[in-house]
Nucleic acid binder design. Structure first.
Lengths: 225, 225
DNA sequence: TCAAAAGTGTTAAGTTTACACCCATGA
DNA sequence: TCATGGGTGTAAACTTAACACTTTTGA
């Protein structure tokens, strides 16, 4: 009867995390220089395996938390990678997820234990298996999504200057944006709120700090950058 | 040593196919009224399981071929569906793929054997498990992709009229398009070639048949509809 | 002869891009 | 006082959207 299932093989289902951070003008990824087998010494994404009793999304959150200590992070599934020999050790079908985190807020101790490092997304080393492919696909998916939904804010602190926001989008798109046009679009959207606080770390004059107003966004969710 | 893998559980990995077809003015899906367990009698997507020695993409092609007899069909992965109890029978992590086929060219006998039927994508019945969700996600992914890459032609015969092409895009987008603007865009792209053949099935006057010129497209791959 | 689909250009509206200077401040 | 980043508006170029009539032919 349950031949329907049991005549089929079962597989390890892996999780791999493309963890984006943003600092100054650069998008970076948090990657591991593996101090464990397999592929010890090489660079890889943070990974893990789906366990019984947890969904794929939950597994991805858990794996991310194991490295960063962070809960409730913005994550999106990139897709399944299922080539037969993608992992030379065993047949593993892996689900890639990208995560957007504030590069100033994570557990440094945990990251240190895993021998993980931030690396400029444009200067990535060779990664094991098909991890470079996963990164490529994640970058495209993220870029696409960031252009039409307000997910970029997950890479910034709660308060940010418009220059920081512009630098972020320039990094995501890989091209520079006209300052006045950028600020016009921000103003048009109407849910990026000026606060009365001023940041003086970036310039002598100081720049107003803004914040993303989620409630205002949901009232009129038009986003285009 | 290979504790690294073996301490983790393994899972059935399913494949589910969202098979799009286009007829006259309607997008349809090929779905099964199951004459087998589990969920006998209910509607579902065509599915199967990944096997040893085949990649996920290969499994998807095989499953599609089992139903339609077609090889080398345009398919894209939609994503992995990994909720713990999504399949009440067993823990199965499923990969959804959509396929675009010419509704006039498939193996009717096979389709009949599987008790499969074409159903208007806007009038779908309730499908088992999370299959309606898969369809929703596939429709969005397909719409997005169809707007910026010439994948729509996979749903048409090799030769088609501009009215057919317009009807197709209207069905994909779920909105009507101005005929003159549409034809202007087609002309601008330059790789949709007029033939000297005429189709007289759609009108008394007859309409020129066109074909997609892949070579010309690759020379200057700009697509926007 | 008439119903039904094919085919064809122009104009207005809206959107996007390009562009340059003054301001405030700390070193 | 000057070097640095912050802040601001307008006009031209381009793109998109709206719109209506003639043609052909089989029934």
């Amino acid at each position: 009867m349950n031949d329907y299932y049991s005549k089929n093989p079962r597989f390890y289902v892996g999780i791999d995390c493309i963890i984006f951070g943003f600092d100054k003008k650069k998008l970076s990824l948090l990657i591991l220089q593996r101090n464990f087998e397999p592929a010890k010494g090489e660079w890889s994404l943070m990974g893990g395996f789906v366990q019984e009793g947890e969904s794929a999304d939950e597994a991805a959150k858990r794996v991310l938390q194991e490295l960063t200590g962070l809960k409730s992070v913005y994550m999106e599934q990139v897709g399944a990678f299922g080539e037969v020999h993608r992992d030379p050790g065993e047949r593993v079908i892996s689900l890639a997820y990208y995560a957007l985190i504030d590069i100033n807020a994570y557990d440094h101790e945990l990251v240190h234990q895993h021998n993980a490092h931030w690396v400029d997304v444009n200067e990535l080393p060779h990664l094991i298996f098909d991890h470079n492919q996963m990164v490529e696909k994640a970058r495209n998916a993220m870029k696409q999504k960031a252009s039409c939904a307000p997910i970029g804010f997950n890479l910034l602190p709660e308060l940010f200057t418009l220059t920081q926001l512009q630098n972020l989008y320039e990094a995501i798109y890989g091209e520079s944006i006209d300052k006045r046009n950028f600020r016009k679009r921000i103003a048009d959207m109407g849910f990026i709120e000026k606060t009365d606080k001023i940041d003086k770390t970036g310039s002598k004059k100081g720049a107003y700090l803004y914040k993303f107003n989620d409630k205002a966004y949901r009232k009129d969710p038009r986003f285009k950058l």
